[in-house]
């Protein structure tokens, strides 16, 4: 009896049908010709990074202890004593950084090619939810290292949440488990980081991809029409990107490994405390305007961005004009993001 027969006895499914479905869904998935251009096929990058983060995260969780007494020490142990621990930790850190950058790139491509337009508005919103989830998982993960930088980044980050109108106090208490960042915060962040957020991100990615497949990949105007099958050409592209990412992250880990910093000291507030770099633009904006107003404005901007697929048609009835508004708004937003991030980086 062959293995295939042995398996068929125990899993009596229509194997031929299974192969057919697999071929239709994956192998022969029609990929529009414009996806041959690298610049227009960046959405897979965060998707490739996710399993890498999960694998390295599981390995880190073998050693990490989420308590104020042990968190820093266990990160030090991972970095300095566990075999290849520095590489796993560096990979996880750089993987998180690249995931955020790649999501920005993907969003930019979607925005400039109008891929959020009807009937794909829902997927744009799902994508936005994914961005928030990824920022939250990065924020909670960064705080777990429990050094001075991360401890005070957690403090300043949760302080921003406190400014949310009406529910700010409740939210920050829920996040911190008390008045300030303590052992309760650490266990909450740990639970969010290793369990709830990865589950939500995976669910949202599944929804993101199902919606994508239901509608098919959007086909921007002005490109050659036609399709090619997912396998082998696009599949090879994914393999190349995967190998490139592994090499790039490994290189970054070796050249620029994340340090340990100084152990967190809740009694010693540094003169200059900052959140992680991906919040710099928001952080600087909030420093420039009164905090309550700033939070309201940020909330408004975020709402406009989330619901942009529904707002855009209201901006103009002419397609050309809408396109120009799209390019100008997108370009300006990116330039402001970059400028604010750099300004906050170089400021003391």
């Amino acid at each position: 009896m062959s293995v295939k027969e042995w398996l068929k006895e125990r899993f009596p499914i229509d194997y031929e049908k299974f192969v057919e479905i697999n071929e239709n869904i994956f192998i022969k998935e029609p990929i529009p010709l414009h996806m041959k251009k690298w610049l227009l096929a960046m959405g897979t990058t965060p998707f490739i990074l996710l399993p890498m983060q999960i694998i390295t995260g599981i390995l880190l969780a073998f050693y990490f202890v989420p308590s104020p007494e042990m968190a820093y020490e266990s990160v030090r142990y991972i970095t300095e004593e566990v075999q290849l621990g520095f590489w796993i930790r560096g990979f996880h850190h750089w993987g998180a950084n690249l995931m955020i950058i790649s999501i920005f790139l993907h969003m930019m491509r979607v925005f400039f090619t109008h891929a959020y337009r009807k009937p794909r508005e829902i997927n744009w919103i799902v994508g936005f939810i994914l961005l928030f989830l990824v920022l939250t998982i990065s924020f909670t993960g960064y705080s777990l290292t429990y050094n001075q930088l991360s401890y005070w980044a957690a403090t300043v980050g949760t302080n921003l949440v406190k400014e949310t109108p009406l529910i700010g106090g409740f939210l920050v208490n829920m996040l911190r488990g008390g008045e300030s960042v303590t052992a309760n915060t650490l266990t909450r962040f740990y639970t969010l980081h290793v369990w709830l957020l990865p589950l939500l991100i995976t669910l949202m990615i599944v929804i993101h991809i199902i919606v994508l497949r239901v509608h098919g990949i959007s086909e921007p105007e002005g490109y050659d029409k036609g399709y090619y099958p997912f396998y082998p050409s696009h599949f090879n592209k994914i393999i190349i990107v995967t190998l490139f990412l592994i090499s790039l992250i490994s290189l970054l880990t070796v050249i620029l490994p994340p340090g340990l910093g100084q152990p967190a000291d809740p009694m010693n507030t540094p003169l200059h405390i900052k959140p992680e770099w991906y919040f710099f633009s928001v952080f600087l904006f909030l420093k420039l305007v009164p905090i309550k107003l700033g939070i309201l404005l940020i909330g408004l901007i975020v709402l406009i961005m989330i619901f942009w697929p529904f707002i855009e048609p209201l901006t103009s009835k002419k397609e050309d004009r809408r396109a120009i508004i799209n390019y100008v708004l997108g370009g300006t937003a990116i330039l402001i993001l970059i400028a604010f991030t750099i300004l906050e980086t170089i400021s003391l």
Binding site: L39, L40, M42, H93, W94, N97, I100, I101, F104, L105, M108, R109, F112, T113, N147, L149, L256, P257, P258, G259, L260, G261, E276, W277, F280, G330, G331, I334, L335, I338, T341, I342, T345
Partner: peptide, 23 residues
């Protein structure tokens, strides 16, 4: 997409590098 991709990658990678050096 090309111009802003380069801008985003270069600037954000530099920022991430500067920030990691601080650790």
């Amino acid at each position: 997409i090309g111009i802003f991709s380069v801008l985003l990658i270069v600037s954000l990678m530099i920022v991430a590098t500067v920030e990691i050096k601080k650790t």
